[in-house]
Design a binder for these strands. Structure first.
Lengths: 361, 361
DNA sequence: CTGTCTTGTGCAATGCATTGCATCGCGATG
DNA sequence: CATCGCGATGCAATGCATTGCACAAGACAG
């Protein structure tokens, strides 16, 4: 018994257990059963082209297809149409709590369009991004929603955009050469700053997120802009976080608290996780929030209203952003002129208990 | 000028802006450039079949392909191979904080295999599940990782399994007819119960998650099993949550606290979000945790160590689960005999400050 | 030196839906 | 009655990679 034969026998055996033989019904079968030509069957099953046929023919074909449990072979269709019916989404990290609402918004729209979502993570790694882009291009994704862009990625995005429609979400690249929808982070930073200043704080510090990401940079600029128009002092902090995590927030806050002299009376953390890290740093130093230091977070992450103290934060319309970005992607796929617009969705300040007027000793 | 011509003109115009003409290099081109037959080129580019050729031929083809920037047309390949190189993942809700680590684990393994992940959400809705399954079948996903199963879904899963290899993650269906990897929720419930009992609690109540989901049911059983072997009393609570959310946790806790008479001294919430909801309910009633009531959560969700008080909870090896489940899926795809095993990963109790000995007045 | 085996490569069929063009038939019009 | 037109449907090419089989040339044994 040759090796070949053995292999075949195994296969046969396997099939007796799980028959995935998938003696699939093809369009030709339907056509035969309905007594028409495959081409006619194809048209009958295409909602857009169904009215090309006699209603009886069309309905007969549809009925037959229904009964036979026909499903198009999406490979064949894609091969012919050269489009996959999938939309690729690139995110930095699914675990980031601000993503799910965005993904959900995207999903709602995309699913309604009978398309499927392909999700991939870059972990903020440039070469992974390139790899993913390759995959998406190879898979002929109909469009890419990119929410993991760094400021330096313009070139990569441009070369992707040559091949596939691209929509930028949340994070923009340097220039506005691509259709983009982000949160209005400059405004967000302003809201945070104005809130703290209006409480009476005059010595403030930012706990900055990675500065090669447009959204953090926007927050920084908005915050700084307000500072420059008031008598308040923004304490310059040399470092920014390598990642917007609890650990990095703690590290940055510690660095500030370890600086000799008086410390600032308020922090603006570039996201809630970092704010929580700052909270930890305070606790470690025996300080309390907001009595000693007020903290404003960003994102209104789940549970950020349940930490101690509940965080004052900036809430982002993420579901809405997801929906818009998906709608935009769909429009671009449909071939509507790709205006390289950038749309910014306004955030909202949520005041809770991590901010208060500074205590004057 | 006919409508047709206008359309074409528009198209041409559009192309001058964004040339997606994608004059794609096909295998035939490569073959021609390398002076071989397409079949040979195909073999040269297939790592598994590369040694079938003369090294020179193979390398020449590869070089040419490289230089020409050749990429297989995945549709054509899939059509031929009748496999898509994608793995579908079905989850209940991406926003659920315990998912990201699992997804990440899955992604690590799947990406390493050059496959892509297709993610879809059911929102715990049965008909959505069916719809998604249809999509996945139509797209000829290589395997489905299903982590959104309800106990009653056995039939749907069986019919899916006829067409595509299925692996169950996190949640099992009633019987163990499919390869499954879950957390050991019975053990998790036990750990929670034992911890509370050993602290001296004798009057306890569960805040139960949806009982049509195996993982919540496991937690309940593990907890109840310990109760039955001790002198402690499990307060029977009629209701269970319709969804494992903060709101539902609060509702359930309120219902218990509103019952006349003494209240239990400890809650076991079936996940951290519900635990946080219970925390809120306590606060609303002027009670404090753990002085009046101890609470054990489940999942060790992000920030659950930062709520007030930090939650005692059950930590799950989710990343590991994701990795294993993906590995299992890969094995099943590769055709290894589909033993309908169920593997349970042990959780771990994390003691923080939401639990303490009951105060005896 | 012939026969057999091996190894490398070519041939052609295959998978399946889509779509531009051709055709057929029928009713309408001159 | 011949012709034109139009609507419905059939025909066949197309998209591209994969793979079983066949064939050829070279190696080696008898």
């Amino acid at each position: 018994m040759s090796l070949h034969q053995v292999a075949r026998a195994c296969k046969a055996l396997h099939h007796t257990f799980v028959d995935r033989s998938s003696a699939r019904v093809t369009l030709k079968d339907i056509a035969r059963l309905a007594g028409v030509h495959p081409a006619t069957a194809s048209r009958a099953l295409d909602p857009a082209r169904g009215d090309m046929l006699t209603p009886e023919t069309r309905d007969r074909v549809r009925r037959v297809a229904q009964e036979a449990g026909y499903q198009v072979n999406s490979f064949a269709r894609s091969l012919r149409k050269n489009s996959s019916g999938m939309v690729g989404v690139v995110v930095a990290d699914v675990a980031n709590p601000f993503l799910p609402p965005i993904l959900r918004g995207i999903e709602q729209i995309i699913r309604a369009e009978q398309k499927l979502l392909l999700i991939a993570e870059t972990h903020d790694d440039g070469s992974t991004l390139l790899e993913i882009i390759d995959h998406f291009v190879a898979r002929r994704v109909d469009a890419v929603i990119l929410s993991a862009a760094h400021l330096g990625d313009e070139h990569a995005v441009a070369s992707l955009a040559e091949k596939i429609p691209v929509v930028l979400a949340v994070r923009s690249v340097g220039s506005a050469r691509f259709p983009t929808i982000t949160h209005d982070d400059v405004l967000g930073g302003q809201l945070a700053a104005e809130h703290l200043v209006s409480l009476g704080h005059r010595d403030l510090a930012q706990l900055r997120g990675p500065m090669d990401v447009s959204s953090f940079r926007g927050r920084e600029q908005g915050f700084a802009a307000v500072m420059s128009t008031t008598t308040a002092l923004e304490r310059f902090v040399d470092q920014s976080a390598t990642a917007p995590t609890v650990e990095e927030g703690r590290r940055l806050a510690k660095a500030i608290l370890d600086t000799p002299g008086r410390h600032p009376t308020a922090f603006f953390a570039h996201n809630d996780l970092m704010a929580v890290g700052a909270l930890e740093a305070l606790r470690d130093r025996g300080l309390t929030c907001p009595r000693d230091i007020s903290i404003v977070g960003y994102n209104d992450a789940p549970l950020s209203n349940h930490v101690n103290p509940p965080l004052t934060t900036v809430r982002l319309p993420s579901l809405e952003l997801g929906r818009r970005v998906a709608t935009l992607a769909l429009a671009v796929i449909a071939g509507s002129p790709t205006e390289p617009t950038i749309e910014k969705l306004p955030p909202e300040l949520v005041i809770r208990q991590s901010t208060a007027a500074p205590s004057h000793p």
